[in-house]
Design a protein around this nucleic acid. Structure first.
Length: 574
RNA sequence: GUCCUGGUAGCUCAGCUGGAUAGAGCAACGCCCUUCUAAGGCGUCGGUCAAGCGUUCGAAUCGCUUCCGGGACACCA
């Protein structure tokens, strides 16, 4: 258990012993460091509840505190300030130095499916996909760290209009292909296309279909035929999905995103008939389509119905999401399903979630949650585009960063090693920037700023770690402990590290990673200050030297583990 | 039009389950290398928290109104 949590439980005990029945006592970093490292504001809420003077309440609490706290003092109307004694700090960190899990608190285990990634088959990944992947992957790892059982599903966009588009384009390239011959009964040949070919075919078809209504009609029809199970169409489309999946997987690998389930919308088809059966009592016809009302009596905002079947009889993305939900519940019986998509889909997900509960598809005690995220914008504040106005694909984005990153690597590192470091550093830079702002905030993509060695950037973090690792290596020892707390810069770092339990808890509650990144920066910048002012290896006093090395190791362990949560890899030198 | 979001330092953003004097980074200016990676560190400058009203012992934080930006509103995902 973390020191903070343990102390909070103790404080709660003290307060309850005084006869105050409250739920919790929070120990938070003091806003006025001159009075102590931490503060407790519980006297105010007690005073309100029991109609007492907050200052008097504080005095009663303070009189009961044991020697784990020092410098206990009351300020203002009843703010209690205090610090931990040196012994408490030393004992705690000397254990935690080799046991990272002592620094935070596990939570009640729940089984959670995380739906993130969401790449579209046969289209290249773009900036929006990166955010879903980065946030989802990090949240998945965070939940696991906190003791949850988590299943990550990429939920590939492997069905929809793009299928019809690509098949219609293929038909124009190979009009006599057996895939389009309904009387053909033999084995289908392997198609000879690369994901690059698909990337060219899609926009071509899309443009043509937008200009020519009969082409669009053909696209719709092919899409419907695939769903209905047309043998040739299904085989051809599956091959295309396979081809593009391979390249999508490579990009996700690069981003350190690894999925437990590599499933997609097509995997929901087999559940759709049952979904429709379950929803039947709630469906009605509207403008030729089948829809489900999702309004509630106490709604004070409009809530349009969810469309389930289009007027041509085919499924729509909502149908497939509902099918996916049914499949997940039957196969995995999760406590929760979490979705990470663009915030613009929030109304849609609210409809799906409401429909799931209303129709009884999902039991009330299974929690469905949608976590939206903001868009990545260019310097003009509008969604990030290439110079010619197209959507920025992920590969170009990575190379924009890599161009900047090259400048940060020492000249003497050459060849393959340099290339590898540049790659790792580029991804780290991209990910650090992507997770730095609050999940729901839009942010402006600025390769130069993100790649800087100063500030809250990937390069700053990794560079700081490179120095620590180099230092530890040169120390020629591994048996460190914190003995001497006379150096204030040392205790400042330690006190900061204590906050980690709160940081992780808050990150979980808000499903956002910016608190963790902010914390990483805070710890490292305090440590760097220490590093700058003290020469660790040349320290004459053995107790101090040992303490300094212990601090360095501890900082390394903490940051290393947090970067692992963020799915950011380190480099050994740069 | 309705609903959802956001408006905090010159720029980019934290802070928002109400707590003491609103914080970072960048930029600008000044300082610190015979020192473990100075690719770093320190300091200075910079704010009517969009505006107004309300709730409260206490409001950037909660509520209402107004102004400005972004987004969503069924046969795309």
């Amino acid at each position: 258990m973390s020191l903070i949590k343990e102390s909070e439980e103790y404080l709660l005990h003290v307060v309850k012993d005084l006869g105050y029945d409250i739920e919790k006592v929070e120990l938070v970093p003091s806003g006025r460091k001159e009075f102590g490292d931490f503060q407790i504001n519980v006297a105010f809420s007690i005073a309100k509840l029991y109609h007492e003077n907050p200052r008097a309440v504080s005095e009663k609490i303070v009189s009961r505190l044991d020697s784990r706290f020092i410098n206990v003092n009351i300020q203002g109307a009843g703010f209690i300030n205090l610090s931990f004694s040196d012994d408490v700090i030393k004992n705690y960190f000397n254990k935690a130095i080799d046991h990272f899990d002592m620094l935070y608190d596990k939570m009640d285990s729940r089984k959670i499916i995380i739906d993130y990634g969401g790449a579209n088959a046969a289209k290249s990944l773009h900036v929006g996909h990166m955010r879903s992947a980065n946030i989802g992957e990090a949240v998945k790892r965070l939940l696991r760290l906190l003791g949850m059982e988590v299943i990550g599903d990429v939920h590939l966009g492997d069905f929809g209009r793009q299928a019809g588009m690509l098949l219609s384009e293929y038909k124009r390239m190979y009009p006599n292909s057996v895939f389009f011959d309904s009387s053909y009964e033999g084995e289908y040949p392997k198609i000879d296309l690369t994901d690059k070919d698909l990337g060219i075919m899609y926009p071509k078809a899309s443009l043509a279909a937008n200009e020519d209504p009969s082409r669009m009609e053909e696209v719709r029809n092919i899409t419907l035929q695939i769903e209905k199970g047309n043998r040739g169409f299904v085989n051809l489309w599956n091959q295309m999905v396979e081809i593009s999946s391979e390249s999508i997987k490579k990009v996700y690998d690069k981003l350190n995103c690894h999925f437990d389930l590599w499933e997609g919308e097509m995997d929901s088809f087999k559940y759709i008939p049952r979904v429709l059966e379950i929803m039947k009592p709630y469906l009605y016809e509207s403008e030729g389509a089948l829809v489900c009302d999702v309004m509630k009596e106490d709604d004070n905002k409009p809530m349009p119905p969810l469309m389930v079947i289009k007027k041509d009889g085919s499924s729509i993305y909502g149908t497939r999401d509902l099918g996916t939900i049914l499949g997940r519940i039957e196969r995995f019986n999760p406590d929760e399903i979490w979705y990470f998509t663009d915030e613009r889909q929030s109304l849609y997900f609210e409809q799906v979630i409401r429909a799931s509960y209303k129709t009884g598809l999902v039991n009330e005690n299974v929690k469905l949650k949608h976590f939206g995220f903001g868009t990545i914008n260019g310097s003009d504040g509008k969604p990030f585009k290439t110079r010619d106005g197209k959507v920025m694909d992920l590969a170009s984005l990575i190379s924009l960063i890599k161009d900047e990153i090259e400048k940060n690597i020492k000249d003497e590192i050459k060849g393959d090693e340099r290339e590898k470091i540049a790659d790792t550093l580029s991804i780290a830079t991209l990910k650090y920037a992507d997770l730095l702002s609050f999940r729901k905030t839009d942010y402006i993509f600025n390769p130069k700023e993100f790649s800087s060695l100063n500030g809250k950037t990937g390069p700053y973090v990794l560079y700081s770690l490179v120095r620590i690792k180099s230092l530890l290596k040169k120390s020629n020892s591994d048996n460190y402990s914190i003995i001497d707390l006379s150096n204030k810069e040392v205790s400042e770092v330690l006190i900061k590290i204590l906050e980690i339990s709160k940081i992780l808890e808050r990150s979980y509650l808000d499903a956002t990673l910016n608190y963790i990144e902010e914390f990483i920066y805070d710890v490292l910048s305090l440590y760097n200050k220490f590093y700058n002012d003290n020469n660790v290896l040349n320290e004459k006093d053995e107790n101090k030297k040992n303490t300094y090395l212990a601090l360095s190791k501890l900082v390394y362990q903490v940051i290393h583990n947090l970067l692992d949560v963020l799915a950011i890899n380190e480099v050994e030198k740069m």
